[in-house]
Design a protein around this nucleic acid. Structure first.
Lengths: 205, 205
DNA sequence: ATGCTAAACGGACTTCACCCCGCTTAGATT
DNA sequence: AATCTAAGCGGGGTGAAGTCCGTTTAGCAT
């Protein structure tokens, strides 16, 4: 017989020291970002400031982008919670169109708020920005499905709407443009425009 | 009196040797890409294989991404020509909706064909992928304007449609996904889906 | 407690993008 | 043709990402 009745839920839990170091590294990274911006967060500097070896940093995060993805994932969880079980229209309980509009607005706010980190989390090596986008596409896909639109390729449209939502902030807008104009009381232009886009897409059966 | 009647159009022409080297470098880069893919095109390797100094490569292209941007620009010119003065519906002469659909289809084909280079041309330093996108956004903006849609922020919608069109191939799809399925005779799913998207956006006044 | 081993660690090493600056040369001027 | 100089050139230098591998240690088994 092999094993004790370990009732826990971490099938491949990392070792205690490893977990401690991950936390410490993330905290250090956050501090460095707050002080000098993402640009100055180099693997060497991070390792040194955390008092750990560079190899450890790479073991934990795999890649520089991985650090920022991990950072983002923490926030992402809170966000995801609001979407999966928060109050409508962002959470369940509203119609698909309403939810999709709310999702876009919330997502844009999220990306604006975490703009620097979100961009730093992009890794031009691997094509799919893992953490972030991971939830947007399936969520949009689901809402499109619920709406029962007649489309040639719902999966593909979901992908294109994902790009329409996140692309501007990840690819095209500069730091200033993205962060600067919270001005108008109606909200971010991207949010207004997203709503118009969704309304038009949902309009026809 | 200053000058001879040089009738030509290069206000700040580069020196003959410089131009020759640029061509040579681009040709060498193309060869290297064909043989081993973009990944193996390093600045050192390119310089060595071209028989030039590394400094020269940087002087000509500024950055690694610059090489791929230059490579893309050549193709881009041909493409732009077709859009600006080719036959409709891609060129002028058709209605805005028809033209936008045609533009998307052509653009997707273009990006699929040059997928590797287009991705390598992305530069995570500067936010705006200069070469490529440069023409897509204004063109979409113009067609939206011509259609006279009533929108809160036409410029922003143009940006979002640009992202919807180019984002999937630049950000989200892997090499295989992007290149693989030319299968169906109706065309690339991205193209079909783009058409549906545009039709819906244009549907309401 | 003691031993065992897989996991974690550290830091030197490699590779690559990009910088710097003294030398060379195209090509305009006379 | 000879001269002059701005532009071009070369390649060694620097900083940062990512790899390797020998050493250390957490945490289980006895």
């Amino acid at each position: 017989m092999n094993s004790p009745v370990v009732p826990l839920g971490k099938p491949r839990g990392e070792r205690a020291d490893a977990a401690r170091n991950r936390e410490h590294l993330l905290a250090t990274a956050r501090a460095m970002i707050a002080e000098h911006g993402t640009r100055k967060v180099t693997m060497d500097a991070l390792a040194e400031r955390a008092g750990l070896g560079k190899g450890t940093v790479f073991r934990r995060f795999g890649t520089r982008a991985g650090i920022f993805q991990a950072l983002l994932d923490e926030e992402e969880h809170r966000f995801q919670e609001r979407v999966l079980s928060g109050p409508p229209p962002l959470g369940p309980g509203a119609g698909p169109e309403e939810r999709l509009i709310a999702y876009g607005r919330a997502r844009i706010a999220f990306l604006v708020e975490h703009h620097a980190i979100a961009r730093a989390a992009l890794d031009r090596a691997q094509p799919i920005p893992v953490g972030e986008v991971a939830m947007t596409r399936p969520h949009i896909r689901m809402l499109i499905g619920q709406a029962g639109l007649s489309l040639p390729h719902p999966d593909t449209l979901a992908l294109q709407l994902t790009a329409a939502l996140e692309g501007p902030l990840l690819l095209y807008l500069s730091m200033d443009e993205a962060t600067a104009p919270p001005a108008e009381e109606t909200g971010h232009p991207l949010a207004e425009s997203w709503q118009a886009l969704v309304e038009r897409v949902f309009q026809a059966g």
